[in-house]
Design a protein around this nucleic acid. Structure first.
Lengths: 106, 106
DNA sequence: AAGTTAGGTGACCAAAAGGTCACATGTCAA
DNA sequence: TTGACATGTGACCTTTTGGTCACCTAACTT
């Protein structure tokens, strides 16, 4: 899925994950507000927010001259459901087998 | 967490996710075997496998001149538990609130 | 109306990432 | 022991990414 790729790439940057954390703690923040919590210029933050928005992880609402940012957990939910589940919910036995295989090494 | 960062970055590339899928389908494959399933030179695949290994997503075992690759789902489980859960398990109401807020827009 | 505040754009740069290749090492097989 | 096979390494190149800045528009304030 092409969309998944954008989400994974958006999540790959620590600053962007921090921005998501900030929005998780309190939604509806403006760019300036977010900038003040990060050691980066406004332009850098704006770029990161754009990436998050294009990945669908953040949605925005304009209010006068301000732009309010909201977290959208749906894309994370989607990659969770159709990708991560696969690797985490099954194969406890496979894991044990691997451990055994490694322990057999000299 | 610094380790999380390596995992997220490792997951950001579609070729690497494909390699994980291939190992998920059948573990213990060699580099040459994996190379044959991907439109990329052996060197490219080797680089990707190294990234996956350094992120802990793949573990290897040497067998003669071959290097066998195994999937390790533990790091995915970890980011699932301490990061993704946070965004997916709660806040159904927050989501509804957001939807309402957006619908109020002109 | 004038100044201030919030945000957007495009140019620009440095660093990192993705990919290939020539070459080198180690291992198996005849 | 010779040749083929599996993999590792470092140089190298191109594209992408992360970040800043100068400059612009739009909206609030007084």
């Amino acid at each position: 899925m092409v969309d998944d790729d954008r989400v994974f790439k958006a999540l790959a940057d620590p600053t962007r994950r921090l921005l998501l954390d900030l929005l998780f703690a309190r939604e509806g923040r403006t760019l300036t507000e977010l900038e003040s919590e990060v050691t980066m210029s406004r332009f850098g933050v704006a770029k990161h927010l754009k990436v998050l928005e294009e990945a669908g992880l953040v949605v925005t609402r304009r209010s006068g001259r301000e732009k309010l940012h909201f977290l959208n957990p749906v894309p994370i939910r989607l990659i969770h459901d159709r990708w991560i589940d696969k690797y985490t919910e099954r194969h406890v036995t496979a894991l044990v087998d691997l451990k055994t295989a490694l322990e057999d090494e000299p």
